[in-house]
């Protein structure tokens, strides 16, 4: 089976890059700030592939570059360099070579994103149903009745009370806001979903139900996902393979059970030991 996504050498530097940026940052220098020029190396030389329907975990402490990886793939940020190829039924899209209209099309039709901060994923000035309708409209569904029916199906599927679909998600609990984000992301049945710390900061029981929902969706729709989290429990539950990041670099990768039971890198060993 061909990968749905192949990423090679993805690099994102904030600031004007100097020749030392890559050499003087990273885990062995214990920083992602270039001492020569002060630029921040948010991610450097990140490479991986993802199979259709597979869940890949990206784990690491805050600031290690996890979000940068998914944000560049979702076109929220442009990479400094690197290549990413996304395959759908018809062809291969060289993501960072596309023009902005093509990028927007992929974002709306083929990708879904769920942010840690619901503010980024939802428009609070319109209703929960309206948020989903927005995405459906971009996908050429434009009959009012059809849109409403599909939106309520999606909210039901993600356990959001349909009775509240006309309220602004601003008034919803954190867990419910994440469910609306998931419903919105799923509206177009995207083959690729990015999840950035989606359960961080929620109560344990709320977290658990959202993780269940994510797994159910993966079973039902065979959605490939990249799950970014600093939480080893989330990784253990969701991901078949995991990348570990530190100071913008992938320091190790492997099958998730192997990363957790036989970590190779000193940093991963510490991380795993501290959560036992």
């Amino acid at each position: 089976m061909k990968p749905i996504l192949e990423v090679q050498g993805l690099t994102r530097i904030h600031g004007t890059e100097c020749p030392s940026c890559l050499d003087m940052t990273g885990p062995e220098h214990n920083t992602n700030v270039c001492p020569a020029c002060g630029s921040i190396v948010a991610a450097a030389n990140v490479s991986f592939s993802l199979q259709p329907g597979e869940i890949l975990g990206i784990m690491g402490e805050s600031g290690s570059g996890k979000s940068t990886v998914v944000k560049t793939l979702y076109f929220d940020q442009a990479p400094t360099r690197g290549k990413a190829c996304f395959r759908d039924d018809t062809r291969t899209h060289d993501l960072f070579e596309l023009n902005s209209a093509e990028q927007r099309w992929l974002r709306n039709h083929r990708f879904g994103m769920v942010y840690q901060n619901p503010n980024l994923g939802l428009n609070f000035s319109i209703s929960a149903g309206g948020n989903i309708a927005e995405r459906l409209l971009m996908n050429d569904l434009n009959h009012y009745g059809d849109i409403r029916r599909r939106a309520s199906e999606l909210l039901t599927r993600t356990d959001v009370m349909v009775g509240r679909m006309d309220e602004s998600p601003r008034q919803f609990s954190g867990g419910m806001q994440q469910r609306v984000q998931i419903a919105k992301a799923l509206a177009t049945r995207p083959p690729l979903l990015f999840l950035d710390e989606v359960t961080t900061g929620l109560d344990l029981s709320v977290q658990a139900r959202i993780l269940d929902l994510i797994l159910e969706i993966q079973h039902e729709l065979d959605t490939a996902m990249i799950v970014v989290t600093h939480d080893l429990g989330v990784i253990r539950l969701l991901a078949s393979r995991t990348l570990v990041m530190k100071h913008g670099r992938v320091i190790e990768s492997g099958l998730t059970d192997q990363i957790l039971e036989d970590p190779q890198h000193a940093y991963t060993q510490q991380l795993v030991a501290s959560t036992l």
Partner: peptide, 9 residues
Amino acid sequence: LKCIYRTYL
């Protein structure tokens, strides 16, 4: 057993 299953490298 864990080596066979690749839980250990």
